[in-house]
Measured scan of single mutants.
Amino acid sequence: SDYEVNVNGIHHRFHNISEELIKFIEEALRRGEDLREIIKKVRELLG
Rank of each mutant, 00 (worst) to 15 (best):
I17G: 02
K23P: 04
E44S: 13
N8R: 04
I39H: 04
K40W: 06
N8C: 08
E20D: 15
N16H: 07
I22M: 05
D2C: 06
H12R: 00
G9P: 00
I25H: 00
K41P: 00
G9L: 01
S18A: 04
I22D: 00
L45G: 10
Y3H: 03
E44F: 10
R43Q: 10
K23W: 11
E4Y: 01
D34Q: 11
G32N: 15
G32D: 15
G32E: 14
F24G: 05
V42L: 09
N8K: 07
R43H: 15
I17A: 09
E19C: 03
H11M: 08
N16A: 04
N6L: 05
I39N: 03
E44A: 10
L35Q: 03
D34A: 10
L45F: 09
N6E: 13
F14H: 00
V7Y: 04
H15P: 08
N6S: 08
L21W: 03
L45R: 14
V5C: 04
E33L: 13
L29M: 12
F24A: 08
R43P: 08
R30L: 13
D2L: 00
I39C: 02
L45C: 05
R36I: 12
K23Q: 11
F24W: 14
I10F: 04
G9M: 01
E44Y: 07
E33W: 04
R13F: 15
L35E: 03
I10S: 12
F24Y: 14
G9R: 00
K40G: 10
D34F: 08
K23M: 10
V42I: 07
K41C: 04
E27I: 11
R36T: 14
E4N: 05
E37D: 13
E33F: 06
S1L: 15
N16F: 03
I17R: 00
N6I: 15
V42K: 02
H11P: 02
R30G: 11
G9H: 03
E4S: 04
V42E: 02
E33Q: 11
D34C: 07
S1M: 15
L35K: 02
I25D: 00
E20W: 12
R13K: 14
E19M: 06
I17Q: 02
E37K: 07
K40R: 13
G47D: 12
I10R: 12
R13G: 09
R43C: 03
R43M: 10
E20V: 13
E33R: 11
R13T: 14
H12M: 03
E27K: 08
R30H: 15
A28K: 09
S18P: 07
K40P: 09
L45D: 08
E33I: 08
Y3K: 01
V7W: 06
E26C: 03
E19Q: 13
V5R: 01
L45T: 09
E26I: 08
I22C: 01
N16W: 03
R31C: 03
G9I: 02
R31P: 01
E20R: 06
E20L: 10
I39K: 04
L46D: 15
E27R: 07
G32K: 11
F24H: 08
R13V: 15
R36V: 07
R31L: 12
S1T: 15
G32C: 03
R43A: 15
E4Q: 04
L29H: 05
E37F: 07
E33V: 13
I22E: 03
V7G: 05
L46F: 06
I25G: 00
K23V: 11
R13W: 11
E20C: 05
D34S: 07
Y3P: 01
A28G: 09
I25F: 05
D34T: 08
Y3V: 02
F24P: 02
H11Q: 07
H11S: 09
L45K: 10
I38V: 13
I38L: 10
I25S: 00
E20K: 08
F14A: 00
I38W: 03
V5N: 01
G32Y: 07
K23A: 15
I22T: 04
E19N: 11
H11N: 09
H12Y: 03
V42R: 02
K40C: 01
E19T: 08
I38A: 03
E20G: 12
E37Q: 11
E44M: 12
Y3F: 12
K41H: 13
F14G: 01
V5F: 06
G9F: 00
I38Y: 02
H12K: 02
V7K: 06
N8W: 00
G9S: 03
D34V: 09
N8E: 08
E33S: 12
S1A: 11
Y3G: 00
G9K: 01
E4I: 06
L46G: 14
E26V: 07
E26G: 07
F24I: 12
K40H: 13
F24E: 07
L21T: 13
I22K: 07
H15W: 01
E26K: 10
R36S: 14
Y3I: 04
R36K: 11
G47C: 04
I38N: 01
L45V: 11
L46K: 13
R43W: 06
V7T: 04
K41L: 10
E20P: 09
L21E: 09
V7A: 06
S18Y: 04
S18V: 05
D2G: 05
L29N: 05
V5P: 01
E44L: 10
R13Y: 12
H11I: 11
R43K: 10
N6P: 02
K23E: 13
I25E: 00
I17V: 15
N8P: 03
D2K: 00
Y3M: 04
E19W: 12
G47L: 15
I22Q: 05
A28I: 07
I22W: 05
D2V: 02
G9V: 01
Y3S: 00
K40L: 14
V42H: 04
K23G: 08
V42M: 08
K41D: 08
I39L: 07
N6G: 03
L35T: 10
L29Q: 07
R36C: 14
H12F: 03
R13C: 05
D2Y: 08
R31I: 09
Y3D: 00
E4L: 05
V7P: 01
N6Q: 07
V42F: 06
R30S: 13
L29A: 08
V42N: 03
R43D: 15
L45W: 06
E33N: 12
I39Y: 02
V5L: 06
I10P: 03
V42G: 02
F14V: 02
A28M: 09
S1E: 10
V5Q: 00
K41Q: 14
V5W: 01
L46S: 14
K40S: 09
I10Q: 15
I22A: 05
R31M: 08
I10M: 15
F14P: 02
N16R: 02
I22H: 03
N16K: 02
G32A: 14
E44K: 09
G47M: 13
